[in-house]
Design a binder for these strands. Sequence first.
DNA 1: GCCACTGATGAACGGGCGTTCAATTAGTCT
DNA 2: AGACTAATTGAACGCCCGTTCATCAGTGGC
Lengths: 219, 219
Amino acid sequence: MSESHPQSTGRARKFSRQAPDERRQALIAATLRCLAEQGAERTSIRSICREAGVSLGLVNHHYHSKEALVADVYEQVSNDLLATLGEAARAAEGDARTRLSAFIEASFSSVILDSGLLRVWLSFWSMTHKSRLIAEVHDRTYGAYLATLEELLQGLARDDAPLRLDTRLAAIGLSGMLDGLWLEWCLNPRTFTPDEGVRLCETFLDGLLARDVWKRGSP
Amino acid sequence: MSESHPQSTGRARKFSRQAPDERRQALIAATLRCLAEQGAERTSIRSICREAGVSLGLVNHHYHSKEALVADVYEQVSNDLLATLGEAARAAEGDARTRLSAFIEASFSSVILDSGLLRVWLSFWSMTHKSRLIAEVHDRTYGAYLATLEELLQGLARDDAPLRLDTRLAAIGLSGMLDGLWLEWCLNPRTFTPDEGVRLCETFLDGLLARDVWKRGSP
DNA sequence: GCCACTGATGAACGGGCGTTCAATTAGTCT
DNA sequence: AGACTAATTGAACGCCCGTTCATCAGTGGC
């Protein structure tokens, strides 16, 4: 049978070695599962090791602290998520507006609207103020998120030549609405449906594109 | 001198009695300070008692658990905050739109844009999934928040008679943008200015009022 | 002036935490 | 086959946690 289980002919292997990169990856995955299921407060090095099926000391062999491990998790989850959303936008055939709609719809898909994912994010957010490392990951990944949105919005502005759109601010506004609705939906899914969330974001976009609307708010 | 300090004529008072209501209030205030400064993870019953200047056992004398205390804090902070914002809206002289703008501006005032306040809210949010009590407080207070926004938006719809505004959904959208921007600003105040936040919310409102915009997102 | 009532105290309990480190062992290289 | 290397183990350390409860002490009613 498998060499990871006891055999009749010899002693069981007590553990299996792995290359540091693979092991780190396994620890990251285990940490993510813990954060999603238990939240930051109940995610201990012990529970992570239990989840990963390794002994207590292993985390501190591969990471010099719990903080460093969580920072790696943050970085990876952010990148994966943004990649998923970006992929959805890129896969949409059509003009810039169609791609943006695809991005928004993907943001309200069941992969994203998951209270476990919120628990993960709340964990990261709650660490930003006491961990420089985590704060840096936040700034970097949120910057990448904004940049992606801004790029999509620049496509919009290009399609609609006479329109003067402050794409930086528009990206901030759209991300604010996406994040705020996502947060609220995860906290209480009964408040509104994912479809309604999509419609609200679309409404915001439409408002941006109504030419004389934008300048009303300006000084 | 004060009877709460040692006197030359007698022994120092070891403690002072207070009516349960007053004491509870003091504990709530101390808990709030702890949550704002340290976050949920570092806010222990011990640190709360230290902050309130009372002994360890007192919290469990007035509350049967830490959870019950935090639920009381949540309830009170929510009510205070909504009262502050509602006050700002009510104090604004003018039409419905003016009152809404006042509400929005108040939401981006320095009292609200405070990373300590975010830490408090992150604490509450992170407890909603493992505490029925806290989840109930969230539902109740967020419902009141939405109701206030919806009332203000109904005033808008009344001023602009031909406009058909789904005030429930509009309130959800506005709250989403307010919360999302508030969250992001607290996490990284360098991303945008409070003024820009106000302008983004105003833009969303203007979009809602551009008559033919709303139905575009509808089925 | 005393007593009952009740708010307040703080030691004690059992447990979980992050981190350290000497010992062990799997896998590779000669 | 044996030695070497480095991944892995798990006990141990010191600390903080929420809750319990026997005890103490102010206050109001008699």
